[in-house]
């Protein structure tokens, strides 16, 4: 990551110690951070500072973090990372469905947060180039124009559904995609309840594209939430 402080992050979080260590960690890496203690203030900060990325705690004193995400998604596509201390997976899924790109469960490590921030910033940079002809992760290359997938130069045969699923994952690389979103995108709205279809096709993809399908490096399961494609190990 370049040492410039071109990168601006808004943190919406009411807990002082978390604010403090995030500020210490992020600013050490050359990221400028603006803190908002309430959801309302967070919305104002996001509107005025034009940040590159937003970090939102779900438990805010004045309004629900999910509400904040919905408001921002109404006018901006900037990457949003959610911090959650809640035990129920349902909240994470709700936040992701509301438009968040990623989540971290408390307590989390700084290294992990930094990795996520980097991934999302890169994705943002690539966003205009989503018309790119090809996409690479590990030793796998997807050639969008030719609808071809190769792994270490050898062509991999994918069924149409497998291919569609892989493309959706690749277009959103780094982002956590909920089961519902994937089912909707790949199979259509009537399949929303058939999550076992998704799981079976993920198994097929892993068997075809991962070196060890039981310990995947790229096609990652977010237990209870969904899936994510990670480009680098």
């Amino acid at each position: 990551m370049p040492g410039s402080s071109d990168v601006h992050v808004v943190l919406i979080e009411d807990d002082k110690p978390i604010q403090r260590f995030l500020r210490a960690s992020l600013e050490g890496k050359g990221i400028a951070m603006f803190v908002a203690e309430t959801g309302r203030q967070g919305l104002i900060e996001t509107g005025t500072r034009k940040p590159d990325l937003l970090i939102v705690d779900l438990g805010l004193p004045d309004m629900d973090g999910i509400e904040v995400i919905r408001h921002i998604r109404a006018w901006s596509g900037l990457p949003i990372i959610v911090l959650s201390a809640r035990t129920q997976e349902g909240d994470k899924v709700a936040a992701l469905d509301a438009g968040a790109d990623d989540y971290l469960s408390k307590p989390f490590g700084v290294a992990e947060l930094m990795a996520r921030i980097r991934a999302h910033l890169r994705r943002r940079d690539q966003a205009p180039g989503s018309t790119e002809q090809s996409f690479r992760f590990g030793d796998t290359v997807i050639d969008f124009s030719g609808r071809l997938v190769t792994r270490g130069l050898l062509p991999v045969h994918l069924t149409p559904t497998e291919y569609r699923l892989l493309v959706v994952l690749a277009r959103n690389a780094g982002k956590v995609l909920t089961h519902r979103y994937l089912l909707h995108e790949v199979w259509g709205p009537s399949y929303a309840e058939n999550s076992h279809y998704l799981r079976i096709y993920m198994r097929h993809l892993r068997q075809k594209l991962e070196r060890d399908p039981t310990q995947p490096k790229h096609l990652i399961t977010e237990t209870g939430v969904g899936y994510r494609l990670i480009i680098t190990d």
């Binding site: 807990d15 002082k16 110690p17 978390i18 403090r20 260590f21 995030l22 210490a24 960690s25 438990g59 911090l83 201390a85 408390k106 307590p107 989390f108 490590g109 700084v110 290294a111």
Partner: peptide, 11 residues
């Protein structure tokens, strides 16, 4: 929440 702070700060 405080544990996150503690972990983060110590890290």
């Amino acid at each position: 929440t405080p544990l996150t702070g503690l972990l983060g700060l110590s890290a």
